[in-house]
Write a protein that binds this DNA or RNA. Structure first.
Lengths: 190, 190
DNA sequence: TTGATTTTACTTATTAGTAAGTACATTTAC
DNA sequence: GTAAATGTACTTACTAATAAGTAAAATCAA
């Protein structure tokens, strides 16, 4: 596969995470790569193509990470923490989450992008639901809500945590991050 | 004050909440109002003026609501619930939170808008912090985190709850909404 | 009739997108 | 083994649409 194509997706993703889907243009990408705007259209005829490719690439990266953690026999706690650490990295880089970024612009996205986005969120939620469920059985987690609801809460805290941290202060994300871990840490019996 | 001016702000806010700051144009506003693009520029010479006015109007509405609740002697529980009900309404109307919307586009906003946004988030967080603190003293709330951290969590859950609900399903917001109330409801002593 | 409001008629810049052509490497035909 | 054809990765040079923004004239309302 083409290296230029990969770089376009990479830069496109970075721009979605920093400026939002409607906040960047093909020119922004071509300028960074030192090529012409038309060269970007050569790989991605329309912005819709680029948008879906960005989401698909992201979703694929997620699946690879999950597969990798499974094959390394990560327990549920470590899997969740690894996932959450992706957000710590985003916070350091002043980026937000792809889901939160596109969640803002969802009404301006064409159907194919919208569907890809929904698919990815569904996938992450159900992955986390299973993870929480299994982890609780093992006593690694403790919570009272249905596992899917707990997953929704964790994802929401991560997504808006990054957004709030970019408005306020990076340290505010760390606060939220810590609180998530505390929320599901098993409490000693009294 | 001009009725047209007020309508422009109202429609502008609606557009920010549905399509994002970079997803709408003056043309979108003027078309709805049946006036010309230039008439919008008469009231708001630049989009920056409009953006700051939208935030200021929103912040003012918040202050009025707080004042009103105080004068009606709402207890802390009812004040928090009233605030949260604003988000229930947004969810019904498939709108997201102003803070979440602008949080995505923050890097593309000019300084005055950015500052207004930061001011508003600071204000809401510190209002909720005080509310939680006082409510806990009265036994209306129960939580273990520092009040500001708890406020950050609640705001984050509300903001991303709306975003996720727009991608997934409206009912997912209600789930998160309920979980917030449960999170701070005093537990009976054992 | 004065000032507030709005339209007309622009400008300039940027957007996504396209059509035609170029350079160069690879394959195919003889 | 060489020449012709083909494919890849672009550039050049556009278009059509839309963006924000402006100046000046027209309209309206007190």
């Amino acid at each position: 596969m083409s290296i230029t194509r990969e770089k376009i997706i990479e830069i496109g993703e970075e721009l979605v995470l920093t400026k939002g889907y409607n906040g960047f243009s093909y020119q922004d990408i071509s300028t960074v790569l030192g090529i012409k705007n038309a060269a970007v259209h050569y790989y991605f005829p329309s912005k819709e193509n680029l948008g879906t490719s960005i989401i698909k690439t992201n979703a694929q990266r997620f699946e690879e990470m999950v597969d990798n953690m499974e094959s390394l026999n990560f327990d549920e706690w470590n899997q969740l923490e690894s996932f959450m650490k992706l957000y710590l990295k985003s916070n350091r880089e002043s980026k937000i989450c792809l889901l939160g970024s596109l969640g803002t612009d969802v009404n301006t996205l064409s159907d194919p992008i919208h569907q890809e986005l929904t698919k990815m969120v569904d996938r992450i939620i159900s992955w986390m639901e299973t993870l929480l469920q299994n982890g609780m059985k093992k006593g690694l987690f403790q919570f009272t809500l249905p596992a899917r609801d707990q997953a929704l809460r964790i994802l929401a805290l991560l997504i808006a945590g990054l957004q709030l941290a970019r408005i306020l202060n990076k340290s505010d994300f760390k606060t939220i991050y810590q609180s998530i871990l505390e929320e599901i840490t098993p409490k000693p019996q009294s």
